[in-house]
């Protein structure tokens, strides 16, 4: 088992680096232009189902947005766009 661990970690690291550098060259505009709805779908789903915008009011979404930015390490731009989308759709 042990003899597989180091090669596995090496392959894992190489794979991550390849993906990382390949994506660094991709369009930054595509990221900047992502809508709040798109970010809501992509980020919330990683831990739980996407929430219904109507379940909370604007003030509550603001608080939940800050909570999720902290918990899920969202960037500030992502959190702001998601909260704005949820506030506009509730």
């Amino acid at each position: 088992m042990k003899k597989f661990i180091i090669p596995s970690i090496f392959v894992f690291t190489l794979f991550v680096c390849m993906l990382f550098f390949q994506n660094c060259t991709a369009s930054k505009e595509a990221i900047a232009n992502k809508s709040g709805a798109q970010l809501w779908g992509e980020n919330c789903l990683r831990c739980h189902n996407t929430p219904s915008p109507t379940d909370f009011n604007d003030t509550q979404w603001k608080t939940i947005g800050l909570h999720m930015q902290d918990r899920a390490n969202l960037t500030k731009d992502e959190a702001d766009k998601i909260v704005t989308f949820l506030q506009s759709a509730n």
Partner: peptide, 15 residues
């Protein structure tokens, strides 16, 4: 200390 940072089109999450 923790946060999320956009690096190109990838993202880093650190703590």
């Amino acid at each position: 200390v923790k946060g999320g940072v956009q690096v190109g089109s990838a993202k880093l999450s650190y703590a």
